[in-house]
Design a protein around this nucleic acid. Sequence first.
DNA 1: AACCTAGAGCGAAACGTTTCGCGATGGAGG
DNA 2: CCTCCATCGCGAAACGTTTCGCTCTAGGTT
Lengths: 335, 335
Amino acid sequence: MATIKDVAKYTGFSISTISKYMNGGNVLKENREIIKEAIEVLGYKKNQMAAGLKTNKTMTIGILIPSLENIFFTTIVSIIEDELLKEGYGTIICDFKEDHQLERKKLDFLIDKNVDGIIMVSYAGDKEYIQSLLDKETPVILLDRMIKGLECDCVLADNLNASYQAVEALINHKHKRIGIICGPESAYTAGERRKGYVRVHEDYDLDMDEDLIYNGDYTVEGGYKAINDFWQMDKRPSAVMVTNYEMTIGAIMAINDLDIKVPDDLSIIGFDNIQISKIVRPPLSIVEQPMNDIGMTAASLLMKRLKGDYQSFPATYRLKTEIFIKESVAKYRED
Amino acid sequence: MATIKDVAKYTGFSISTISKYMNGGNVLKENREIIKEAIEVLGYKKNQMAAGLKTNKTMTIGILIPSLENIFFTTIVSIIEDELLKEGYGTIICDFKEDHQLERKKLDFLIDKNVDGIIMVSYAGDKEYIQSLLDKETPVILLDRMIKGLECDCVLADNLNASYQAVEALINHKHKRIGIICGPESAYTAGERRKGYVRVHEDYDLDMDEDLIYNGDYTVEGGYKAINDFWQMDKRPSAVMVTNYEMTIGAIMAINDLDIKVPDDLSIIGFDNIQISKIVRPPLSIVEQPMNDIGMTAASLLMKRLKGDYQSFPATYRLKTEIFIKESVAKYRED
DNA sequence: AACCTAGAGCGAAACGTTTCGCGATGGAGG
DNA sequence: CCTCCATCGCGAAACGTTTCGCTCTAGGTT
């Protein structure tokens, strides 16, 4: 492998001049050509480790997500990865299998790897630890969920309005008893989505039945159980919205098992994965998060911070969701 | 950040002794204790970059897959990542968005990052380039598809037997006209899955109609079109097997749109994702690849190579698939 | 004509490790 | 008692960069 030394020898310049060239410093135009050619001929590539030893930069970003099997996160990661690559940054992607213990461990691992910055989805929300990273000038971008009381950049979907609009659509279809299958109280997103539900009821002056707010746990089983519970009620809801992908799956399974007719017996709006809306019958209405936007925004915000631009820190980007109403939602009719 | 120097000063030993300790060399037991404590106190962490500069090891593995949005791959990646982490290796994960051009570019990127080894799913199958890596003693493990004419370690599912068994199951249900929705001719996996179809027909002495072998392209649209084509035939198949996940989705969409009754009008076996088998009605029969096995095997094979053990190179691990027959498959009845 | 300044290139120290070869010690074997 | 060898620790060079401060030149400003 050719080193900077070889290039220096080949061209007759000093090592420092080559280094200058490599880093975009002032070098005479004609000499630039000479060096460029030499690099070509020798196949010289900068040794990141050696450079990093001096600069304390690894040109590597750590990405930490709850699960690599969750397409919502991996889609975003894929976008981020591409954006960062354009700037010469590599990414180390870790998942913590939705395990609070592991989250800390994997985060530690990333830090050990000397990443220059971190983009993460935090469940545990270890305030002190993340603060200590920020103090060390390691930029951290929070994805999908904020951490209360922590001053940190954050990019997420507008969860409140997402559920607001979904429930609003149901109200416009004349539904009066609308169920919502929420996530765990501990999850930031779950709280926001619940708020949207509450607010739209207020705005439309609609009575709210606490029993119709189901506290799930963002798992398939949770969604399954929720529908079963709703169906055992004396006064069943005529419509229901599910607030994440896994529970949507579970809800559909329950609907199948209970032979509930959609949308005649129940209207339903799911969450996150547009693809499943196509394979179930009837086509499922869906709230879709702006994954592309989230990825792009997170990447460019991180780049900004890496360049030392801490303008408007801490920034929070709350990006608009989209709602697709399909045949799984119908006008409410009294039987 | 404390360096090895600080530890040396603190303990009174020389730098080289500390280094020796760090790398498991011979150090007096009592001194080991002293050093251990010093490291604790000072919070010393080895600087990978400095170490790597000497050893030419980054302790980083590159993983390259076609798409981060394909749960089959990400599940495997997640397992690999965990296994490698146990050995202190980090992973840089790239996807090439199913784009042959990008594959090479991303691979270059990984090489530029000085990864110690590579685990990849190759579509383009750039024989020369991968050979050049192997020549440079950079271990490469191929996942999911082999590259013809390249001597390289490889871990994949037993695709031939996967489709053999699926079609065999249909034959056992008395089906005579069985359709198969294959992948593109260029894909190694597609060829194997086709072979299984052919072989089981031979073994059971069943007539084979070439028209029932549909050459798809592993996309949702491809699966959709395949079912439509089959349904326009004079002599429709009574059962069909789909040979990847995306086409399975497409096939189900078509079945819904055409109002085909499963399994009365058509029995169907899908591929890869056990989860969708639960949310469609009736429950879908599925061929499942041993993702866990694939990941574990790939990781441990790579570790072996990294340690310089090139025993039985090139090794090919062909892992058994599992088949789950559900209600989407029924006994064939003449109408 | 004298003075400045910006541009261009150079030399050397520094980053934090690993590793090679050497010296010291001490116990085992003859 | 001498030799030998294994164990333990040390010093110094090396890995491939970046960067600071220096010199030199050429052109522009007074």
